[in-house]
Nucleic acid binder design. Structure first.
Ligand SMILES: [Zn+2]
Ligand SMILES: [Zn+2]
Ligand SMILES: [Zn+2]
Ligand SMILES: [Zn+2]
Lengths: 129, 129
DNA sequence: ACTTGACTCTATAGTCACTATAGACTTTAT
DNA sequence: ATAAAGTCTATAGTGACTATAGAGTCAAGT
């Protein structure tokens, strides 16, 4: 499988696949005579793993750590758990922030009748204070 | 007031203030004989406006538009409203995404006893599928 | 008068996770 | 044989900053 097919199969762009390789997240692929990258089942699984992590907003540096841990199957999984719990607490933090943003934005929208001039607009007044 | 004082008063870093100026969000300040930036009440208000917008996660390009609209006080505020509503819908979208992330992360954490090896870890299994 | 230290100046590079080019090379289809 | 599609490397751009280098400015203390 060449890079284009891997890209279509996984939904990752070709540039992203090459970027993951450069960052050491994907193992170095074989090459054809013409220097094209060649992938197999293994690369597909590696890439799906990365995609799953990224869909959970786990930063690449942590994905890399997870891959390293995955390759030490006999060790304790405590650090896997710690990493995911940290990610969870980040998500919780961001949710609380967004909740506050939402409340303030909603109040702003409700203070604007759209029939005002900018000068009299409740939104601009809010932002100014 | 020199840039250091403005920075302390507003909580914006000195580099950020200079960055906002370069991006055209803050009006060009006067300079002392020694080429130091000099700010007054007006700059303080401009910067507070930007800070308030940024605390709502409004991107700088939209902050710039809001500033332009603010300087046309006689026009209709419809586009102000549109901009804030768009920001609100972005926040809502992100909240829905984070809710899904949170659910999956929580399920992962609950599938890990920390007493496992990496090989048997429920988190790694989730990420692998 | 001189030095120290705090402050400021510009210009440049780094962050993160990609995306988008440019210009060259390889392969496939007509 | 030629054209089109795919791939290669290297480089630059994104957003909103942060961090640094190296030079200049200014006030206080000796
Ligand atoms: Zn999932
Ligand atoms: Zn309004
Ligand atoms: Zn506010
Ligand atoms: Zn576990």
């Amino acid at each position: 499988m060449k890079i284009g097919e891997l890209s279509k199969t996984t939904g990752c762009s070709i540039q992203t696949i090459r970027y993951y390789e450069k960052e050491g997240l994907l193992s170095t692929p074989e090459r054809t005579e013409g220097n094209y990258r060649l992938y197999g089942e293994r690369a597909l699984k590696e890439l799906e793993f990365i995609k799953h992590c990224r869909s959970l907003d786990i930063p690449l540096i942590d994905v890399k750590r997870l891959i390293e841990l995955k390759n030490k199957p006999e060790e304790s999984c405590a650090s896997v758990n710690a990493l995911i719990e940290q990610q969870l607490s980040l998500v919780n933090k961001r949710m609380r922030e967004l909740k506050a943003l939402k409340a303030e934005l909603q109040q702003m929208v409700s203070s604007c009748t759209t029939e005002n001039t900018v000068e009299a607009c409740g939104i601009i007044k809010s932002l100014d204070s």
